[in-house]
């Protein structure tokens, strides 16, 4: 990796750690000055850009850390006593979840624990056998897969979703492309969705869900196939949506981010049968 490339990556990584543009510019410029003065290769002087960015972010934590969060607002989504059976098997047993504006809830549980089912019930796409979901505001829903048309271009999918939200074509494309860029993706002209990689398709899926400024975002493991950087970007988006006062529900089986969410709903039965 040459020094220019290293410095560019550093900038990206610093932005991922939510440093402001000024802070990013200063850190990158200082590193560049050091490299020029010392004549050293960047990797030797600073290590990997990811590692150095993390060290810088940690050093600056108090000053440039996430801005003070607004207090959680009103209840945006409230699911009460949700019970769902498939045939004789009870998937969900009296599950409750309340998410306020400016909160992130993680839904975890083993495969088959009913995470996606619960999210579909929250989205109003499935009728629970018992219980009720109350929604306040506009909903954005990112299904786990199959949320896109194979033969349409990403731009066309943006237009399709945008039209539903009452946006005109240009505005829809603009919003969609901006969302894509924020996930390090620039849709190539004329490439149909079926030719995108799994991770890129998930980005498309996620961008579509967040169009139209939803108040409540329901995200069903939308980061499968993401590389590590994009995965971090995804969580940056989650924090940003939260700080903008949206209510976010993320289905996940990865536990690494759980210490940072406001609540965790574990759908794994306490012990099969004894949970009743």
């Amino acid at each position: 990796m040459d020094n220019d490339r290293w410095l560019w990556t550093l900038g990206q990584e610093l932005a991922r750690h939510q440093l402001g543009p000024d802070a990013v510019r200063h850190v990158v410029a200082e590193a560049a000055a050091h490299l020029r003065d010392s004549g050293q290769p960047a990797l030797r002087a600073f290590g990997t850009p990811e590692g150095y960015a993390a060290a810088v972010a940690e050093s600056l934590a108090a000053r440039y850390g996430r801005p003070a969060r607004p207090a959680p607002g009103r209840v945006r989504l409230s699911a009460r006593g949700i019970t769902k059976r498939y045939r004789r098997r009870t998937i969900l047993r009296s599950v409750d979840l309340t998410v306020r504006a400016g909160e992130v809830a993680a839904v975890v549980g083993a495969n088959g624990a009913g995470k996606s089912t619960f999210l579909r019930i929250c989205a109003g796409l499935l009728t629970p056998d018992a219980g009720e979901v109350m929604l306040d505001g506009r909903l954005g829903y990112c299904p786990q897969d199959a949320g896109t048309y194979d033969f349409l271009l990403p731009d066309e999918q943006f237009v399709l979703i945008g039209a539903g939200r009452g946006l005109d074509r240009e505005r829809s494309k603009q919003i969609g492309r901006a969302g894509a860029a924020a996930l390090q993706w620039r849709p190539a002209a004329g490439v149909q969705t079926r030719h995108l990689s799994g991770g890129t398709r998930q980005k498309l899926n996620l961008v579509m869900a967040s169009m139209g400024e939803p108040d409540v975002l329901l995200l069903d493991e939308p980061y499968q196939g993401f590389d590590r950087g994009t995965y971090l970007d995804f969580w940056q988006h989650v924090w940003r949506w939260r700080d903008e006062g949206r209510a976010v529900v993320v289905v996940t089986h990865l536990l690494s981010q759980l210490d940072q969410v406001d609540q965790v709903l574990d759908l794994t039965p306490a012990s099969e049968g004894a949970a009743a």
Partner: peptide
Amino acid sequence: GYELAQALDAAGFGQIQGGTLYPVLLRLQR
């Protein structure tokens, strides 16, 4: 930064890498 690294080197510490030095400077500044 680089001058500090040179001074530390001259003092006998050996080469201090930027990846070590600048986070310290940022923390002191903070």
